[in-house]
Amino acid sequence: MKIINYTKIFREDCIKIFKSNLPKFFAIEELPFFEDFLDQYTEENYFVVKMDGQVVACGGFFLDTKNNVAGLSWGMVHADYHGKRIGKALTQYRIDLLKKTFPSLPYKIETSQHTAEFYKKNGFKTVEIVPDGFSKGIDKYIMIMEVLVP
């Protein structure tokens, strides 16, 4: 397993990963937002995971200067690779980068009821739940990780 920087050559691979997670983890109406994200907001803070030459996961991090928070963005593992600890490795990689890059900010993620427990195990706490916040049947869990500055 190798984590590398995203470039436009991985765009279609990431869209396939997104589509493999429909309709449980993402709603089809979110696809244009993800495509726009890939086209506009992936400079050096978005990554892909390659295994055996295949792109099997993607995810990044962000800085929101307006709200003084950083966090995880658009993380996903291809459905065929769920349960292989790829998501855990990619999440830890991104959290480590956040701690290095933005050591004194809280970290945020917006996720669903299907993955909230995963992020809870990784140090995030739910601060708000918006029923059907992403789509009908997909609640939005807003979660925060407070970082302790030594």
Rank of each mutant, 00 (worst) to 15 (best):
H82E: 06
H82K: 11
G83E: 11
G83N: 06
G83T: 04
K84S: 00
K84G: 01
K84C: 01
K84Q: 14
K84R: 13
K84T: 04
R85H: 14
R85V: 00
R85Q: 11
I86D: 00
I86Q: 01
I86A: 04
I86V: 07
G87R: 03
G87C: 06
G87V: 04
G87T: 09
G87A: 11
G87Q: 07
G87D: 05
G87L: 05
K88V: 13
K88L: 14
A89Q: 15
A89Y: 12
A89W: 03
A89R: 15
A89E: 13
A89D: 11
L90H: 03
L90Y: 08
L90P: 06
T91G: 01
T91Q: 08
T91H: 06
T91W: 00
T91V: 12
Q92Y: 05
Q92V: 02
Q92W: 04
Y93R: 04
Y93Q: 06
R94L: 15
R94Y: 03
R94D: 00
I95T: 09
I95V: 15
I95A: 09
D96V: 13
D96A: 14
D96H: 12
D96L: 12
L97W: 11
L97Y: 11
L97H: 11
L97E: 08
L98A: 12
L98K: 13
L98C: 12
K99E: 15
K99T: 09
K99P: 08
K99C: 08
K100R: 15
T101W: 08
T101K: 15
T101R: 14
T101H: 07
T101E: 10
T101D: 02
T101I: 13
F102K: 07
F102D: 03
F102R: 08
F102A: 06
F102H: 13
P103K: 09
P103Q: 10
P103N: 12
P103M: 10
P103C: 10
S104E: 13
S104T: 11
S104L: 08
S104R: 12
L105H: 05
L105K: 09
L105D: 00
P106I: 08
P106C: 02
P106Y: 01
P106T: 03
Y107E: 05
K108L: 13
K108H: 09
K108P: 02
K108E: 05
K108C: 11
I109N: 05
I109V: 15
I109H: 10
I109L: 14
E110K: 15
E110F: 03
E110W: 05
E110P: 05
T111S: 14
T111E: 04
T111V: 13
T111M: 03
S112C: 00
S112I: 07
S112Q: 01
S112N: 03
Q113L: 11
Q113S: 13
Q113M: 03
Q113K: 09
Q113F: 04
Q113V: 05
Q113D: 12
H114V: 04
T115W: 02
T115N: 15
T115S: 15
T115C: 02
T115M: 10
T115V: 07
T115P: 04
A116S: 14
A116W: 01
A116D: 04
E117W: 07
E117Q: 12
E117A: 11
E117D: 12
E117I: 01
F118R: 06
F118I: 02
Y119V: 06
Y119D: 00
Y119K: 01
Y119G: 00
K120R: 14
K120P: 01
K121V: 03
K121Q: 09
K121H: 13
